[in-house]
Structure formats: structure tokens, C-alpha cells
């Protein structure tokens, strides 16, 4: 099966300006050469901590951010080589759901007006817009009365459902979900996660699920890529990653997540990382994790490449034993 989405060597640099003339003095590589593939109907989890570049990847995918280099291919079509008109059509196929459901809804628009906007922009369901938005509301489990309300009158969970419905309005094949449940309370989060599961099966959607919560990612993703300072350090099918992490960073990350089970918690060994994330302005040469890694040697002064054994990708000179 050919992948619906392919990312090749994606790089995004941001200029850092300084001095009196605000000249470009340096660049920060928010995303530093990332390649991904996504199959139709599957979920790829993208995890990492603050500043690892996962959100920038998401924004590059929907073209909110223009990559510095590298390519995003939709069904083999390079998005950067499309004309403006073709790009507009391509955009329909890949949509984004934001983290903060309140900030991403225009406070002055009713829910109906928010949902009808994408239809009007792409001339979809012409003449039957109101019927279509009712369908969309139903699809995400919102009652029809919500359509006449405004974002501030809804609960957090309802707002996020509106965000999902807006993305679905364009009948995309891929949805990039940028921390879609991290602003929600746990009891509400469960409903949204179940909804995402259901929609995926029903509409054969592919998800890029960006999150920092490893428990949520394990629940929802088929495959997980772990990012650290702009690079993917490990990528493999979900259960394999959690049961047998090969990269020391992945191992530390997983060990740090608390489990809601006192007995298990008491028996767990935490790996406490030393120090803080290095500044992206001043990355160490070689492996960027070496400054905090308990296994680092001289070998780590050279950049490890992302190598695979049995489809388990890891970028480390001293991986754990598989």
C-alpha cells in the first residue's frame, strides 16, 4: 500500500536576529531533517517534550509554516511544486485540529457559521449547507442546538468537537491533531479520544497525532515517533516502543510518566535525567542527547543515524538490547 503522506528530510529554520541592525546572527533549527510516512487509515503518534519541534512539523504539514527545505508529498505529489490553485485543492485533503479549542474558534461567530465557512470557501454542498452542518454536528456527537450557540457558551469538550467537525467539513484524508486533548479534563478527554477512534474507522482517516502525553499516544497511535531537539530519535509500532524502547531518551521519557496504579508506581524504577534541555541555539555536536545521557561515550560526538532493525528505527550509538 502506498503511503497517503510522505515527509522527506523536512527542515525548518528560524532566523535569530540580534544587535542594533537586527541582522540575522544565527538560526534555530526547530525541525532538523525529519522523514515520515503515513498509511491511509492509520495513526502516527509524534511525541516529545516542549521545544522538540513536534508542533512545527504539524504546522509544516498543513502549510501554516513553510519548510526551509525538504518535501511534503501527498499521494506522491510534492506540495511545494503545486500552483496556488492546486495547493488550495490539496489543502482540503489535509486538515489540522488545534490544541486550544477556545482560541481556535472565532469568538464572534456562531458554531453554524464556523462550520459553514469551509464549505463556502471550497464551494461544497452548495445549496445544502445547513443540512451538511447538521450532519457534521451529528457526526461529532453535538446536538443541533449547539449550532446556534457561540464558542464561549460551550464546554471545552464541545468546543473541541466543533474543531474536529470543522476539519471534517472538507472531507480530508489526513488530520493533523496538535495536542487535541491536552487542554481537556480527563473525563472529557476520554470522549474526544473515543470519537477520534470511531471517526478513523468510519471515514478511513489517517491521523498525525502530536502530543506530549505518552499514555494518550499509546492508546491512540499505531506507530510512534519520538522527537528530541528537532530530530526523530526512535520510531516503531506502538506496543514495541513502550515495551522495548531502544533509545535511552525514550526509556527515560517512558519511565517518567506516572501510572494511575499505586502498586505499579511503587515498584517502578524512574530514570531521572540530569540537567535541562540544551538550548536549540547552541546544540552539542554529534548526538544532541549526549549531554544528559548516562551511556554517552566519545562515539556520541558523531551524529548517530536513524537505523532500523526489524522496522524498529533508532538513532543511537548505544541502543538498549532489542
Amino acid at each position: 500500500m502506498s503511503p497517503v503522506l510522505e515527509v522527506r528530510d523536512l527542515v525548518k529554520e528560524y532566523p535569530v536576529r540580534g544587535g542594533l541592525l537586527r541582522r540575522e546572527t544565527n538560526t534555530v533549527k526547530a525541525v532538523n531533517g525529519i522523514s515520515l510516512t503515513l498509511e491511509r487509515g492509520k495513526t502516527l503518534g509524534l511525541v516529545g517534550e516542549t521545544g522538540c519541534g513536534k508542533s512545527t512539523v504539524g504546522r509544516c504539514l498543513v502549510n501554516l509554516v513553510t519548510p526551509t527545505s525538504g518535501a511534503v508529498l501527498l499521494d506522491g505529489q510534492d506540495l511545494s511544486k503545486l500552483t496556488a490553485k492546486e495547493l488550495r485543492a490539496a489543502r482540503r485533503r489535509i486538515q489540522l485540529v488545534f490544541q486550544d479549542p477556545y482560541a481556535s474558534l472565532d469568538p464572534r461567530q456562531s458554531i453554524a457559521s464556523i462550520l459553514v465557512e469551509p464549505l463556502q470557501l471550497h464551494k461544497l454542498a452548495q445549496g445544502q449547507e445547513s443540512q451538511r452542518i447538521s450532519e457534521l454536528a451529528e457526526l461529532v456527537g453535538l446536538s443541533q442546538s449547539v449550532l446556534e450557540q457561540y464558542p464561549h457558551e460551550l464546554s471545552g469538550g464541545q468546543r473541541q468537537r466543533v474543531g474536529i467537525a470543522r476539519a471534517l467539513a472538507l472531507e480530508p484524508e489526513i488530520i493533523v491533531l496538535d495536542e487535541p486533548v491536552s487542554a481537556l479534563d480527563v473525563s472529557v478527554q476520554a470522549g474526544v479520544l473515543n470519537l477520534l477512534d470511531e471517526l478513523q474507522v468510519r471515514l478511513n482517516l489517517a491521523y498525525v497525532f502530536i502530543a506530549h502525553d505518552l499514555s494518550v499516544v499509546r492508546h491512540i497511535s499505531h506507530e510512534v515517533a519520538v522527537m528530541y531537539l528537532g530530530r526523530i530519535v526512535e520510531q516503531v509500532t506502538t506496543d514495541k516502543l513502550y515495551e522495548n524502547p531502544l533509545h535511552p531518551y525514550t526509556k527515560a521519557l517512558i519511565s517518567a510518566v506516572p501510572v494511575p496504579d499505586p502498586r505499579i508506581e511503587r515498584s517502578r524504577q524512574r530514570i531521572l535525567l540530569e540537567g535541562d534541555l540544551p538550548s536549540p541555539l547552541n546544540l552539542p555536536a554529534g548526538c544532541s542527547f549526549k549531554s544528559r545521557c548516562w551511556k554517552s561515550t566519545e562515539l556520541c560526538d558523531t551524529l548517530p543515524s536513524l537505523n532500523a532493525q526489524d522496522e524498529h528505527f533508532v538513532a543511537c550509538h548505544h541502543p538498549e538490547k532489542a
Partner: peptide, 9 residues
């Protein structure tokens, strides 16, 4: 309602 780190995918 909590997704768990130790529950299979």
C-alpha cells in the same frame, strides 16, 4: 477514562 501507559494499544 484514563488512557494508561501500561495498557496495550
Amino acid at each position: 477514562s484514563l488512557p494508561r501507559l501500561d495498557a496495550r494499544n
